[in-house]
Design a protein around this nucleic acid. Sequence first.
DNA 1: AGCACGCCGACT
DNA 2: GTCGGCGTGCTC
Length: 803
Amino acid sequence: MNVASVIVDVITKQTDKTFDYLIPDKWLNTIQPGMRVIVPFGPRRIQGFVTEVKKHSDIHALKEIIEPMDLVPVLTDELLQLGNWLAENTLCFKISAFQVMLPAAFKAKYGKKIKLLSRENIEILPKEIRPFFEKSETVSWEDIAKNEHITLFQKEAARGTVEVIYEVKERLKKKKVKYISPAHSIEILIEQLKLLQKNALKQKIVLAYFIDHFEPVELQKLLARLDVSQATVKSLIKKGLLTEKYVEVYRDPYKDRTFAKTVPLPLTVEQLNAVKPIHQSIEQEINRVFLLFGVTGSGKTEVYLQSIQKVLAKGKEAIVLVPEISLTPQMVKRFKGRFGDEVAVLHSGLSAGEKYDEWRKIQRGEAKVVVGARSAIFAPFKNIGIIIIDEEHETSYKQEENPRYHARDVAIERAKFHNCPVVLGSATPSLETFARAKKGVYQLLTLAKRMNNQALPAVEIIDMREELRAGNRSMFSRLLFEKLTDRLEKKEQTVLFLNKRGHSSFVICRDCGYVLNCPHCDISLTYHRFNQQMKCHYCGFETSVPTKCPECSSKHIRYFGTGTQKVEEELGKLLPEARVIRMDVDTTSRKGAHERLLDNFQRGKGDILLGTQMIAKGLDFPNITLVGVLSADTMLHLPDFRSSEKTFQLLTQVSGRAGRHKLPGEVIIQTYTPEHYSIKLAGNQDFNRFYEQEMVVRKIHKYPPFYFIVMLTVSHEQLMKVISVTGKIAEFIRARLSNNAIVLGPVASPIQRINNRYRYQCLIKYKQEQNLSQTLKAVLDHYQHDIANGLTISVDMNPYIMM
DNA sequence: AGCACGCCGACT
DNA sequence: GTCGGCGTGCTC
């Protein structure tokens, strides 16, 4: 007996285990662990992952596997194992763990249709449903559903006149291109050329081409090169002189681009000192974690590149994670420039097909280096020699939906398997990472100097309260405005940073104080000027701007807060000659828009780059000499214990954009709380002091890295349900954990309602709890039934977003 | 998740 | 006496 254990594609607790299936003899040598298969499951057919092939099963009535979906396993043994680890550590289902490791194209789509079993049956069908089978034997379920004849069809299915067919569909086809090749030897072609009719000029041209270039050629290229039509080629095929075949091709998102080849740069003493231990770890295949702590512009990338070079020389592979790569085309350029076609790129800006193709390049071993965002950590390499995580502190490495994993943790887990180093790079490491480096768990490598010994930019902190007192009510301080005009005159570039998109943050009635809120979420709507709409940034709800207050009918509506759009407008008024490029979610949502805008800026088509978060990282343009942060404290007052850390990181990152090359840079930070340590210390670019100070705060309040935390969020349409469930859960957990653990809550989430669902949460802080994971599993187990009926309980081990 | 099975109220 | 509501439990 040959049996395959399969994890099926049904996301529930009850099915979160393997199901055994017989392997039909014809697939016996094909089916292996890590492959996707189609299996019967109840009356349906669904996708599943084979986790094991064995000789025995304790289940007596086994069904057979219907067919494999892959010829080669899509998950290696290591990735299967990693899937189990993910499921265990993030408390997600195994099927979700497997699916997150693969491109979305591998997720099955399901179809359902009704088939008429025999033409003769049509006579005995009820007359309402006869017309459905007039044209074809099958009807899709959707067509039936919208005609409200479902019950009639179901009766027929039970009677046996029609059959319900469940199908598993592939999401994507491999892209194929038609190739034309000669069907005979050159000699024969030469002979045949003479035999062609005199007036078959075009055919002669084609044949002559193949005599000169005796090799397959892409049809489209052939047509373009010889300026002949498809018919010409067709007739030659018909004569048996040429053959056509389809060849699978990759959709290469970077195909139209050439990358200038770069060579390793000479390293500074500091860089050499950093590269040495990394090389050693690669050479001796020792699993180690390094923290490459280097100030902005200190040349971390070159350290990465030369470490990878070493890995490639050993015949191994490298994974490089960068925060949301579409944001840093410059990064791609550097890697492709050094390693050429060996580089695969994976990020959210690619289409599903492009991602799939890049993934397959990796799987087939055609790429040796992958540069990508979070999910690239699952690249199906078999022989990893190094994993690099750039901007290690970036919160985008944490996935905020199931499985709620952190790429850093996955990297460390994979590196253990491959006995290779992990390099975490940052100018402003997360406190957790820096604390580990200090304790010696990670090895600290420091780059304290900027390349070319360029000085860090001079930072000036402006107290906006002073500006108000001095009668300046504008969003620009006098100093910033002065410098801005100065740069315009000198034809140097400025980056203005503001972490709020839209126009104004909210709309308030001057008479009664009414604030326009989203009807589905407990959050105020944001005014977007370009389409004159109020928009909810959480559920996407949109409504027009009120002309009068919905509460008191007053016409005195005021726009409060400042967004990128409003700044753009203001700049247009104050400095009409300045060319402003605005970058935020609204201007970069279209594919390639991001890169285009940056490109324009780089080529000097803009004087001021105005943007949100997304311009804080990776910009490296020589002509930027001024960076202005319009309001440093917007994120400081969020209900999040990391808000100081995030503020410090962001300010430091943004400041790092200035003066990276020959021209010295200046930074102006505007704030209403200049005395706050995260702002003051960002001004001095003093990470170490910030670390010391923030650690004191974390210790007092029992937050990471002193404690681990788990956030449990319950949501449901009914408020009472949410409150009672969360209360019971908190009580249950409290009773099961030791006295050293702290269970806070239940409390309403900072945003009490999103999309008409109420949200309550419960925060667990702990140092070491043997029973924790077991207890949390028990909670999920206990509410299994409610979860199936619209309750959600999300458990986030190590949350990054506290809302 | 789907779906079948099964047990109580309003209809022919 | 039947149709159909959705609560319950199963899928190798």
